[in-house]
Amino acid sequence: MSMLLRLLSNQQFQIIAVVQLLNVFSTNLLSPVLPVYFKMQGMSESQIGMIMGIISLGALVLRPWTGMSVDIKGSRTITLFGQMLTAAGLAAYFWASGFWQYLLIRFYQGIAMAFYGTGSITFASSVENPENTSAAIAYFSLCTMIGMGIATSIGPVIFAGYGFFSLIFLGLASISIATGLMWIRSKEVLHCSEDTRIPFREVWKAKEVIAPSVCLFGSNFALGTAFTFVPLLALSRNITAYSVFFIAFSGAVVCARAMVHQINKMWNPERTAVYASVINAVSTGLLAVYPSTFTFILAGALVGFGFGTIYPTLAAYVVDKVSPANKGSALSVIAAAGDVGNALGSSVLGVVAETMGFSVLFAGATIIILLSGYYFYKALWDDSKMGKCTA
C-alpha cells in the first residue's frame, strides 16, 4: 500500500486533512484582497502593512503558551478552541471600520491562529507511526496549500463581483463545517505523561529547533512580503492582473506539497530547506528588479514552490528530533519564528515601501531570506553526527 493510500485509510488523518483544508480556506479568502480593500478606504502603505503584519504578532505572543497547552491538554482540545476563536474573528469584520478596529481584529486573529495552528499540526503529526510522520505532515500541509490556493485564487474574483462581505459569509460557512467535523468525528491522538516533559526553555534552546526556526523565518518573510505588497506594487505600476501571482503561487505550492515527501527521500531535509530558501530569494529578487505580469507569474510560482517545500520539511525535521512529550512546544517555537517573519515582512517593510519604494523593499527581503538560509546551512547541513536532541 502506498503511503498516500495508507494515510487516506486512516480516519483521524482524513478528519484533520479536511478540517485543515476548510479552515485554511476560510482564513485565506481575505488575504489577497485586504490590502486593496484597505487602500480603497484611504489607508497608507505603512498603515496597511501594520494591519496585515500584526496578525503574526498576535500569534507570536501566545505561541509558547499554546505549545505547552497542547502538550498538557491535547491537540484536539486546542484545535477546537482555535477554530471557535477563528469564527469569532471573521464575524468581527461585519462591525469593524477604521484603522484601529481593523488592527485589533487582526491581532485577535493571530491569537486564534496560534491556538489552531499549533493544535492542528501536532494532531496531524501524531496520527501515524514515527517513521510515517514526515509523510503525514507533508500531505497535511498539502491540504493547507489546496485550501489556501483555492481561497487566494477565487478571493479577488468574489470580491470584485460580490463585495467584501460575501467573503466573510463564505469564510464563516467553511469554518463552521470544519468545527463541526472536528467536534463530532475526531478523537485525541496524543497523550504523554507530564513527567516525561522537559522545561520549555530547554526545548527552544536546542540547535535542532532554533536553526529550522530561523530558516522558516526567512521563508515566511518572503511570503508575508509578497502577499502584502504584490497587490500594491501592481497598483503602482498600473498592472491590473495582480491575481496571476496568487494563481501561480497556488499551483506551485500544491505541487510542492504533493512532492515534498519524495524530495526529502531523495535529498536530506537540510539540503531541501537550503535550496528552498534560495528559490524564495530568487522570487523576491525578481520583483525587485523587474515587476511585470510575467514576473508576477514567475515569482508566484517560485515562492509557491519554495514555501510549499520548506515548511513540511522543517516541521517533520523538528518532530523527528524532539521527544513526543515536547512535540507541541517544539512546533510552537518554529511556528513563532514563522509568525515573526510574516509580521516583519508585512509591517516593517511597509515603512520601507512608503519611503524608499518597492524595489528597495523586495531587495531587502531578498537579503534577509538569504541570510536566514545561510544560518541554517552553517548550523546543520554538515552535522553528520546529529542525533535525537534532548528536547
Rank of each mutant, 00 (worst) to 15 (best):
S75F: 07
L104E: 09
P35D: 10
G119Y: 00
Q41H: 14
M50D: 06
S56C: 13
T27G: 12
P64M: 12
N129E: 14
I137R: 00
N28A: 13
Y108R: 15
L90G: 03
G49E: 09
E45G: 13
M84T: 09
S75M: 04
G155S: 11
F99A: 12
G89D: 10
I121K: 03
Y139V: 04
Q83L: 15
I137M: 02
L142D: 06
N132S: 14
N28F: 10
M52W: 08
Y93V: 05
P64I: 00
V33A: 06
T27H: 04
P32Q: 09
F38S: 10
I55T: 15
S75C: 02
Q109D: 03
S134M: 14
G117D: 01
A92D: 05
F123K: 07
S126Y: 01
L80G: 14
L30F: 12
T144A: 03
G58N: 10
P130V: 06
G119T: 11
S125T: 08
I111M: 14
A151D: 01
L80M: 13
P156F: 04
F115W: 02
K73R: 12
A114V: 09
A87N: 05
V70E: 00
Y37D: 10
G89A: 15
I72Y: 03
Y139E: 08
N129H: 07
G110E: 01
T118A: 12
M148G: 12
P64K: 04
S134E: 10
I150H: 06
G74R: 02
A151I: 00
E131C: 05
F81V: 01
G117P: 07
S125R: 02
G58H: 15
N28D: 14
V157S: 09
M43L: 14
L57D: 04
G117K: 03
I54E: 08
M68E: 10
F123P: 05
S44I: 14
F99N: 02
P156L: 13
T118V: 15
V127N: 00
T86I: 09
S134C: 09
G53L: 10
I51V: 13
Q47N: 13
G58R: 10
Y116Q: 05
F140A: 02
M145G: 11
P130A: 08
G147K: 09
G67T: 07
I48T: 12
V127D: 04
Q101R: 14
E131T: 12
P64N: 05
S69L: 15
I78V: 15
G98D: 06
S141N: 12
I121E: 00
G98I: 15
S141P: 14
Y93I: 03
V36H: 07
F115S: 01
I121L: 01
A91Q: 11
G53M: 12
T144Q: 10
F123A: 06
L85T: 04
G67P: 06
T122D: 07
P156V: 11
A138F: 07
M145P: 11
G110M: 08
V70S: 00
V61E: 05
C143R: 00
I54A: 07
E131Y: 08
G53E: 08
E45I: 08
S126L: 08
K73Y: 11
V70G: 00
M113K: 02
I55M: 11
S153K: 07
G42I: 11
G117W: 01
F140M: 06
S56P: 09
